[in-house]
């Protein structure tokens, strides 16, 4: 029971920080699940985000379901998801009530607030980017053999970047992730650290 309650508390927090949608939640998920408590290793975190992005549904929702299942089975996944989806709904309900009291003024206030938040959200995205990109940067030079997997990954990043400029992938970034995953799968022998 304890794990379920903690899961709910953590994902309620993640939900409340998720201004600006999907990708901006990544630093919150990372902080709560990797930094603040050792629930996920960096590798597990990376896999969670990848899985959450490849499948339909908001990234935060998918993360909650996955992590919840990992740590608390079916009920963990259910209640973590409920906490993530439900907490903002409470906020919305409150705002809806406020809006029913003074609608036009409230609306423009909310709109301005949201627009004002965007530079900070951009800051969050930088953090998200760095959290995800840092592990891919080679840290020590041991030998070319050891470096091969890392260089392969960097090359993959480069290829993905080029492809992402194409029109098809602009509309469906999930495809890039899926294709990159398949490439990774095919290169399994090459990616094993010797």
């Amino acid at each position: 029971m304890n794990i379920i309650l903690t899961l709910m508390a953590v994902f309620a927090k993640v939900a409340l920080g998720a201004f600006g949608g999907g990708l901006a939640t990544i630093p919150f998920i990372h902080y709560e699940l990797v930094v603040a408590r050792p629930w996920l290793t960096e590798t597990m975190f990376r896999d969670t985000i990848a899985l959450a992005q490849m499948t339909p549904g908001p990234i935060a929702l998918n993360s909650a379901t996955f992590v919840g299942y990992r740590l608390g089975g079916f009920w963990g996944s259910l209640w973590a998801t409920v906490a993530l989806v439900g907490t903002p709904i409470l906020v919305i309900s409150f705002l809806l009530w406020l809006m029913s009291l003074a609608s036009k003024k409230m609306r423009s206030r909310i709109d301005r607030f949201q627009k004002a938040l965007r530079p900070a959200v951009a800051g969050m995205l930088v953090v998200a980017f760095w959290t995800l990109a840092k592990p891919l940067i080679p840290s020590r030079f041991e030998s070319f053999r050891a470096l091969a997997p890392e260089l392969l990954l960097l090359a993959l990043v480069g290829v993905c970047f080029v492809f992402s400029r194409l029109k098809l992938f602009r509309s469906y970034p999930q495809l890039i992730i899926l294709l990159a995953a398949v490439v990774g799968l095919c290169c399994t022998p090459l990616l094993q650290v010797p």
């Binding site: 990708l23 995205l125 980017f129 995800l132 993905c160 890039i176 992730i177 990159a180 399994t188």
Partner: peptide
């Protein structure tokens, strides 16, 4: 290891997607 490499490859794609989104947002 196959699953691991699958996700490792995916993470390369994720970096690109987040990077593009970041750039657009900035």
């Amino acid at each position: 290891p196959w699953l691991g490499s699958f996700f490792l490859g995916a993470s390369a794609g994720v970096v690109v997607v987040v990077g593009n989104s970041l750039w657009k947002m900035i």
